[in-house]
Amino acid sequence: MNIQLSFDAVDPRRLADFWAYALHYRRDDPPDGFASWQDYLAAEGIPEDEWNSGDAIVPIGEEGPRIYFQRVPEEKTAKNRLHLDIVAAPGLRGEKHMAVLEARADELESRGAIRIKRFEPNESGQGWIVMEDPEGNEFCVI
């Protein structure tokens, strides 16, 4: 079964850039016969000021959902009911686990994410860091 996750966004291109980096994804390919999405949109007669109405990213060489970013006029106003977890340190526990999470959180901050809260390792040795993407969507680095 294939699924697509969709994000509402003020700036779809910016969020697609961020999440492609964060998830090790790539931009979705333009339709067959077009070298770029800009070529496709121009051929379809879409005005240039609407070219950032949507954007999509897909996994690089592995299974995973397509993620679509659609422009909406309003900014985010409430907590997400669903969020993504970035698994940064599979198999590690305790301080080694947290050191990898901290490094990944630093990388994501350099791309526009905001660190919200660090949760120390629990009895199973797992901790996590809650963050927000450039438009305020919460996610965890685990």
Rank of each mutant, 00 (worst) to 15 (best):
M1E: 01
M1C: 06
M1F: 03
N2R: 09
N2M: 10
I3K: 00
Q4P: 00
L5A: 12
D8I: 00
A9I: 03
D11C: 02
D11T: 01
R14M: 06
R14T: 06
R14G: 04
L15P: 00
F18R: 06
W19E: 08
W19G: 06
A20V: 02
A20H: 01
A22R: 02
L23F: 12
R26M: 05
R27Q: 12
R27V: 05
R27T: 00
D29F: 07
P30I: 07
P31A: 10
D32L: 05
D32I: 09
D32Y: 03
D32K: 08
G33D: 08
W37R: 04
Q38E: 10
A42P: 04
A42L: 08
A42V: 08
P47V: 00
P47K: 01
D49V: 02
S53L: 15
I57K: 06
V58N: 01
P59A: 13
I60F: 12
E62D: 09
E62T: 09
E62W: 15
P65Q: 01
R66P: 10
I67P: 00
I67F: 00
Y68I: 14
Q70W: 03
V72D: 02
V72A: 05
E75T: 05
E75G: 09
T77L: 04
T77S: 11
T77V: 04
A78L: 11
N80P: 04
L82C: 03
H83S: 03
H83D: 07
L84S: 07
D85E: 14
I86H: 14
V87A: 05
A89N: 08
P90D: 14
G91A: 13
R93A: 11
R93D: 11
G94K: 10
E95I: 07
H97Q: 14
M98T: 09
A99F: 14
V100D: 02
V100I: 15
V100T: 10
V100E: 03
L101D: 07
L101A: 04
L101C: 12
E102F: 10
E102G: 15
A103G: 11
A105D: 12
A105M: 08
A105R: 12
D106V: 13
E107A: 13
L108S: 09
L108A: 09
G112R: 11
I114M: 13
I114C: 11
I116C: 13
R118G: 07
R118S: 09
F119H: 14
E120W: 14
E120T: 13
N122R: 13
N122G: 12
N122M: 15
N122E: 14
Q126I: 15
G127L: 03
I129L: 05
M131D: 10
M131F: 11
M131R: 07
P134I: 08
E135M: 00
G136T: 08
E138V: 12
E138G: 04
E138P: 11
F139N: 07
F139Y: 15
